[in-house]
């Protein structure tokens, strides 16, 4: 029995120290989450301004065309940007992303694709499963707009090349006809949704938005546009794309921290429960030995009497 008690004591101690670690990680994730949320809020004015510019251009200058908005008739190859995390212990965060990717790819059947990964976990996961076209450097946490712009530039270039739909090279051009991004949308601290969005071709401005832009443009009709609206659009489109990549990265980061916080909270709670159970077991074992010893003593005394 003494052996069993020693073992129980040892287990209680180890679970207690695990609980300390998970609680600390939970707190770290909470702080990081707050930081990411601040970052995401900082990005909002820029995103809003880009949107209002798009609406303004759409409303002021009739029909504008950008090669980035044109959908291909036949999609021969797609690019997929997968945003995961660098570190684990964040619950099903990465698993959800990978599941989304699998579902999406099986949906597209035999369509060839190029895979781009952001985050160490995504890179490691796909290293043995699917051919990765390019893994962006790890350290999702050091993300900044520059990185997002680089990614946006690269996929834009691929998209503009096309998958040879029009060219004679027959798929050898290395371009793609659609670009999608898989990320985790941050809805609230308790809710994150794994999402797949089409980056390119850029979806046409929703009619409602255009209407709002046109109404706003009524008193903006005197607005000078320099250089021409078309040229402005050509500058605006890549910016808005880069901003969407950046926003997806920010959302993913916030979601990762939220997921980690939840996972660590669950682990801390589970550890607490385990400590309770183990302590009860330990106490019972201890009481048993005491009772046994008492019985021995009483038995001995009775035998003497």
């Amino acid at each position: 029995m003494a052996q069993g008690m020693k073992e129980l004591r040892r287990r209680i101690r180890s679970v207690t120290s695990i609980q300390k670690i998970t609680r600390a990680m939970e707190m770290v994730a909470t702080t990081r989450l707050r930081r990411m949320q601040t970052k995401a809020e900082g990005a909002r004015p820029y995103a809003d301004a880009i949107k209002s510019f798009s609406a303004l251009l759409a409303g002021s200058a009739g029909k504008l065309e950008s090669p980035l908005t044109k959908a291909r008739e036949k999609v021969g190859r797609i690019a997929l940007v997968v945003i995961g995390s660098d570190r684990g212990l964040c619950g099903a965060y990465n698993a959800n992303v990978f599941r989304k990717v699998s579902a999406f790819l099986s949906d597209k059947k035999d369509l060839p694709f190029d895979l781009y990964t952001v985050g160490k976990k995504a890179r490691v996961h796909y290293a043995r499963r699917l051919p990765i076209k390019e893994a962006y450097p790890d350290e999702v946490e050091k993300l900044n707009f520059r990185r997002a712009r680089e990614i946006a530039k690269q996929v834009t270039e691929l998209f503009l090349k096309g998958s040879a739909a029009g060219g004679p090279s027959g798929g050898a051009s290395g371009g793609v006809d659609e670009v999608h991004v898989v990320y985790t949308r941050f809805i609230s601290v308790g809710r994150q949704v794994t999402t797949i969005d089409r980056l390119l071709p850029i979806a046409a401005e929703a009619p409602a938005k255009v209407a709002a832009g046109a109404a706003g443009a009524a008193n903006e009709s005197q607005m000078l546009l320099e250089p021409s609206p078309q040229e402005l659009l050509d500058v605006l489109m890549p910016k808005s794309l880069a901003m969407r990549v950046f926003a997806a990265m920010l959302d993913s980061m916030a979601s990762e921290q939220a997921a980690r916080r939840m996972a660590m909270k669950a682990a801390t709670d589970a550890a607490g429960e385990m400590i309770g159970t183990l302590t009860r077991k330990y106490n019972r074992a201890r009481q048993e030995t005491i009772t046994k010893e008492l019985l021995d003593i009483i038995g001995g005394a009775e035998a003497l009497a």
């Binding site: 005197q222 000078l224 546009l225 320099e226 250089p227 402005l232 500058v235």
Partner: peptide
């Protein structure tokens, strides 16, 4: 610094969008 050279903006400038 505009696309087509530098320019200045003072108060009561005409409404404008420039790259």
């Amino acid at each position: 610094t505009g696309r087509e050279g530098t320019f200045g903006v003072l108060a009561r400038h005409a409404p404008m969008v420039a790259a």
